[in-house]
Write a protein that binds this DNA or RNA. Structure first.
Length: 668
DNA sequence: CCCATATACTCAGAGTCATAATC
DNA sequence: CGATTATGACTCTGAGTATATGG
């Protein structure tokens, strides 16, 4: 469903001319003002050395938003993009899907357990916390599901898993055969070989589903006092887990609740969707605390932690192995508002700001390499261009047991279609299986390069066959200390906000300024392709808005008629209003006023309607939380006397405390 | 005050990327 | 020993649910 709708915000764009640079000199002059960016080889910078040609359409330093221009040919784009269902081929692909499944139990020789001591990557000196809290044990409900129409007795364990499935009866997963197969496979193991239940098709879970719905309803019907009491009870229980002591400071813990058991809800076409995610127990959990901190008490009587470590080179407080993918981990970290997280957040933005000093040189360098004879260099250049211009993600290789999604380095031939003379049509599933659709005008050299990368390959093979993220990042690191692909996303998002705010903030009242901010925020969200599904009620809501607008228009018409009649000394056509009250205010002045008021109301509603329609598939939150340097926002608020609370909610304010004292003149 | 809509917050899955281990 | 692959740890994501808001 999410990948269903075309992205109406496709940008046709860009006409940034090649070339155009400052002297190479300038590059090296800029000093990293960043302690955290461990500057490796400053010498390598040579490779960014731009050449002094210049063709001054100097928009190189500008944010993407400004570099993007509507292309003349941008009519009905998205509609026509379709996946050319191609014959899958074994093909060119370097057999690089890691042979993950093999990997015989090379038990991690934990000789390398920890490298702390050296004080080098030290994250903390003292760390104390209370561990994690577990979900309550399963409470059997005894509701019987049906098999071939007859009630079935299930053990609590069997019932628990059946209930996990029943609860999802009204989700889209029921339309996914993969989900059902995986579920049934895991459930079957618990039912046992000779159980009456032999296939899913003959199972009727509706009794359990309905029981669950009624439980939900019951909960909803509780009075506010009851809910409040329940909440306080929970809070009391959890209070001690909410906090940690880090280097003498009390800090909030993020996710101290262990994930409850359930069915795996993989996104997109995930091969493992529906598999049973089993209950985590204390013996699955590894705790990390300071050397002389007391060991957290295990909350389950009679059980104990798997292990207690003292590793101050990491920030996690606890972890367990992901039951779906046992070689992956689930961590408990401090909350976003903590000092530790704030620090690394700040470092992230400082690194992105540093890129500002290098970006011209980097763009010049990759532009030059569009035509490189070295094929790897050429691919790196084009990939970097896409990452910079379109804010694409790096695109790591994925295993076969994950959803099939791509990023820049993993783009397939079929994901990018060149449309002469110089348009590229992108269509692929990115992170979280969110569809990315875009048509972009690119420089001739890029267009040619893409055509070349595609030629002779099948649709399913890699566009950048000589590239992967580590090669790309290794190259980026030579251009700027600490530079990686994701920094471009942060940079382009933040510079766009900064730029749009400074260009578009005019006078006006606070509300108008907030609109300017939201507009910029939206632009960033579009660049980053932050989408959301259209709410179920969206169309109904639009309809209602339209109705209301029509109603108001009718009111205006009547008022106008009243006005003209009153002016002629005649009484209104109707002596009563729609609500049945007799009309008052029959003098022209008040009628005029009323007309103006109503028209203003209509205009406002029209605007609201537009915004709503505009934002129906755009999620603003993600960029605000992860990509926009809060100092831009805070400084802008200070300059324009906008209360910061208009922009940041409570948790954002807490997360961004480190940015609050920024100088009003701060610019990204 | 009630309802519905908007916003805030939680949740856990899905990425990125550095480094260690292995080939 | 250089290149891959595996491991580990951290950020980023939209959905779902709870709560606030406002008409």
């Amino acid at each position: 469903m999410r990948d269903g709708q075309p992205n109406k915000y496709s940008n046709m764009s860009n006409k940034r001319p090649p070339g155009e640079i400052k002297s190479s000199n300038q590059l090296s002059v800029k000093k990293p003002k960043l302690s955290s960016v461990t500057a490796p080889t400053n010498k390598k910078q040579a490779s960014v050395k731009p050449e002094p040609k210049a063709e001054d359409d100097d928009d190189d330093h500008l944010p993407i938003s400004q570099r993007i221009k509507k292309s003349p040919t941008s009519e009905s784009k998205s509609s026509s993009i379709k996946k050319t269902t191609k014959v899958v081929s074994s093909s060119v692909k370097k057999v690089n899907k890691k042979s993950k499944k093999v990997m015989k139990n090379s038990k991690y020789s934990k000789s390398s357990k920890v490298p702390p001591s050296s004080g080098e990557g030290k994250k903390w000196n003292k760390l104390e916390h209370n561990g994690v809290i577990f979900p309550p044990p399963y409470k059997p409900h005894g509701i019987k599901m049906l098999y071939k129409g007859k009630p079935v007795d299930l053990t609590p364990e069997q019932e628990e898993v059946a209930t996990m499935f029943a609860v999802m009866l009204d989700t889209d997963y029921m339309n996914k055969p993969r989900f059902k197969e995986n579920f049934f496979g895991d459930w079957k193991k618990i039912l046992g070989k000779n159980h009456v239940i032999q296939n899913l098709e003959d199972c009727d879970f509706t009794p359990i589903y309905e029981w669950h719905q009624s439980e939900k309803e019951k909960k909803k019907q509780m009075t506010t006092e009851e809910k409040k009491a329940l909440k306080e009870e929970k809070l009391k229980q959890e209070e001690k887990y909410m906090w940690a002591w880090v280097d003498g400071k009390k800090e909030k813990v993020g996710n101290f609740r262990v994930e409850p058991p359930g069915l795996f809800r993989g996104r997109g076409e995930h091969p493992k969707m529906g598999k049973l995610k089993k209950r985590i127990r204390p013996c699955d959990i590894t705790i990390n605390i300071g050397k002389d901190a007391p060991i957290p008490e295990c909350p389950v009587p009679g059980e104990r932690w798997k292990e207690v470590r003292h590793d101050n080179t990491v920030t996690w407080l606890a972890f367990w192995n992901d039951p779906i993918n046992p070689k992956e981990f689930k961590y408990v970290f401090l909350a976003a508002s903590s000092t530790l997280k704030g620090l690394s957040d700040k470092e992230k933005y400082e690194k992105a700001r540093l890129l500002k000093d290098y970006i011209q040189g980097i763009r010049a360098a990759y532009t030059k390499n569009f035509a490189s004879k070295d094929p790897t260099k050429k691919q790196i250049a084009v990939a970097t261009y896409l990452i910079d211009k379109l804010a694409l993600r790096a695109g790591n290789e994925k295993d076969d047991d994950e959803a099939d999604t791509v990023g820049c380095c993993t783009l397939k031939v079929e994901n990018v279609e060149p449309v002469p003379p110089n348009i590229l049509k992108f269509d692929f599933l990115g992170k979280d299986s969110i569809r990315y659709q875009n048509e972009v005008e690119v420089e001739a050299a890029v267009f040619k390069a893409i055509q070349q990368f595609r030629s002779g390959k099948e649709g399913s093979s890699d566009l950048f066959d000589l590239l992967d993220t580590s090669k790309l990042n290794a190259h980026l690191k030579e251009l700027m200390p600490g530079l990686t692909a994701k920094v471009f996303r942060t940079y382009n998002a933040s510079i766009t906000l900064d730029d749009m705010l400074s260009r578009e903030t005019k006078g006006g009242d606070v509300a108008e300024k907030v609109v300017v901010y939201q507009h910029a925020n939206k632009e960033v969200a579009i660049i980053c392709n932050h989408q959301r599904t259209v709410s179920k009620s969206h169309s109904a809501q639009m309809l209602r808005l339209n109705e209301k607008i029509e109603e108001l228009k009718a009111v205006v018409e009547e008022l106008k008629s009243d006005l003209s009649r009153v002016k002629k000394g005649k009484p209104p056509l109707k002596s009563k209003n729609a609500d049945g009250k007799p009309k008052r205010n029959l003098n022209p002045e008040s009628l005029e006023k009323k007309i103006a008021q109503t028209n203003a109301k209509i205009e406002k509603m029209e605007r609201d309607k537009e915004t709503k329609e505009d934002l129906k598939t755009v999620a603003l939150g993600t960029s605000k939380i992860n990509y926009l340097d809060p100092r831009i926002t805070v400084a802008w608020c200070k300059r324009h006397e906008v209360p910061i609370e208009k922009i940041f909610n409570k948790s954002l304010l807490a997360k961004f405390t480190w940015a609050m004292d920024v100088d009003p003149s701060f610019r990204f």
